[in-house]
Amino acid sequence: MLAKRIIPCLDVRDGRVVKGVNFKDLRDIDDPVALGKFYNASGADELVFYDIIASAEGRPLFADILRRTAREIFIPLTVGGSINSLDDFDRVLKSGADKVSVNSGAVRDPSLIDAGAEKYGSQCVVLSMDVKRVGTGFHIFVKGGRVDTEIDALKWAVEGEKRGAGELVVNSMDTDGVRGGFDIELLGEICSRVSIPVIASGGAGKREDFLELFRTTDCQAGLAAGIFHSREVEIGPLKRYLAENGVNMRV
């Protein structure tokens, strides 16, 4: 049976990993390639690299990181951050990405999902969404969570699947950074509406949060950044803990 996935996310700015990285035994602790190698050796099932600024100056640095990563790490690599056109897909795929994550670019122009899926296949297109509760509903936010688009997140998830996204990353802004657990309610609502794999993001603080995620929702994967970088949760022991508790893991 298919294993549930544990995915560390590396936010990269100007060639370095941002967010408190706490790897004292890694010589170059904020080098994305070194950190990626460490996670690969720890049993990460996939890596997500997020290009934070994607400025003109940062782009060659970021492309170089992808190329170096793809030469040394042989697990799926998803890349996101400022993906606004098919040229952006092409750029990161040629540098070594296997999947491309679209977010606000797809909100601005939803046909980007269709175009990416048609040219590269649905397996290549990941729709990432930042979601926050507003009143009784869930809205899509953009610009790093500053702008409420007033788009209904549950409808957007369904539309994303229809347009050809192969996976969804659902990041709950309500639980992100709180470390009190994933947003089970939101994730359950989305999983019940789509048939593509849903990757949960935002809120993991301890290993029990991942167990709750996989026991109570159909999410295929749990994604986190800070808790892995800080080593509050380590991927190898986390996967063994989940496997011991009946979750099918690649261990």
Binding site: L2, D45, G166, Q220
Partner: peptide
């Protein structure tokens, strides 16, 4: 009966 595509790690 399961979701397609079959995507992920399998044994």
């Amino acid at each position: 009966e399961l979701k397609l595509p079959h995507i992920g790690w399998n044994s």
